Simulated assay, not measured.
Amino acid sequence: MSEVVIGSILSAMSTGAGALIILFIKGAITHKFRDTLLAFTAGIMMAASLLSLIPQSMESGGYLQLVIGIFLGVLTLTFLEKNIPHIDLEHSKSGIEFDEKAMLIIMAITLHNIPEGLSVGVSYASAAQDTGNLIALAIGLQNAPEGLLVALFLVNQKISRFKAFILATLTGTIEIVTSLLGFYLTSYIGFLVSYGLAFAAGAMLFIVYKELIPESHGDGNERTSTYSFIIGLLFMILLLEI
């Protein structure tokens, strides 16, 4: 129980860790740096899904449970994307600009974090050792650049850097609640474990292919992003083998 609490808190607070950078930077974050970071995160999440979550879902259930769980994860993210405003980036090599309203963005990012929290909690309920820690790490690494983007947006809306840091950090806190919810549901209703692991895999694969990879390839940094993706994938494989 203590592991899931610590893991969910660290994963959720990674949003704040990314937002913390806003207190120290003077100019804009270049797209090349951001694209490289997003691609690295995509590699980590891809490896975690294909080499950890999916095999464990198959082991604890079967192919049917895997298919149902993955599609539930994908459909959940699809619903959120269609019905909740999302940060749209204007691709520019000099920096990042936003045009949505601050409150809508805060609500959107908060709600987008719900499936990620569930993924962490379900992973801790798995019988496989260290799965929860690895998925918490993968989600946490994805949360860090997200936190920075939210903070940058808020600063652009004339909100003070400190307030932007606090608000961006708070958007990640819902993951703690949903992580514990996912953990308790799958712990006490055993047959949900296979579905839950597949749900987590589906949600992560959707984020990788729909969000992270396209956003890391829009500014002429495709080759650098590709290298970063492969390095991220190999990094997670190394963690899985240790």
Rank of each mutant, 00 (worst) to 15 (best):
G218K: 15
I213Q: 11
E116H: 03
G140M: 05
L234H: 02
I166Q: 01
L234D: 07
Y188H: 14
T186A: 14
F235A: 15
S216A: 15
G220P: 08
I159K: 08
S126D: 02
G140P: 01
L205I: 07
S187W: 03
I135Y: 02
M236D: 10
G220R: 05
F165P: 02
E211G: 09
I174V: 08
S216W: 09
T171E: 03
K163E: 05
R223K: 15
R161K: 14
I139P: 01
V177G: 04
Q129S: 15
G202T: 06
L148H: 10
I237F: 13
V193D: 07
L154T: 03
A136V: 05
I231L: 13
N143W: 09
G117S: 03
I237W: 06
F165Q: 08
N133Q: 15
I135E: 10
G196I: 04
F235G: 10
K158G: 04
S187I: 11
T224D: 08
Y209T: 15
I114H: 00
A200T: 02
M204H: 06
F153Y: 09
I159S: 05
P214K: 15
V122P: 04
G140E: 04
G196E: 03
Y209L: 15
F153V: 11
T178V: 04
I231E: 10
L149T: 12
E116F: 03
Q129N: 13
G140Y: 06
S228I: 12
Y195K: 07
I139E: 02
A138W: 03
L234A: 14
S123P: 01
L148W: 13
R161E: 06
V150Y: 04
V120Y: 03
Q142Y: 03
L234P: 04
D219G: 15
K163P: 04
L154S: 02
N221W: 12
G182M: 07
P145H: 07
D130W: 12
F206G: 05
G132H: 09
V177E: 00
Y188I: 06
S123A: 06
K158Q: 13
T171M: 09
K163Q: 11
S123D: 05
A203I: 00
F229N: 07
I207R: 06
F199T: 05
T224E: 11
S194D: 02
A198L: 06
G121L: 00
G117Y: 00
L134S: 07
E215R: 15
I230L: 14
Q157P: 01
L233E: 08
L154N: 03
L180S: 02
G172Q: 10
I189F: 12
V177K: 07
A125Q: 02
F206L: 08
L181H: 02
G218T: 14
L149W: 10
M204F: 10
Y188D: 11
F191M: 13
V150G: 05
L137K: 12
E146G: 02
A125V: 05
I114R: 00
V193P: 05
G220T: 07
F191H: 14
S194Q: 03
F183N: 01
N133G: 14
L137D: 00
N143Q: 08
Q157F: 09
L148I: 11
M204L: 12
T224N: 13
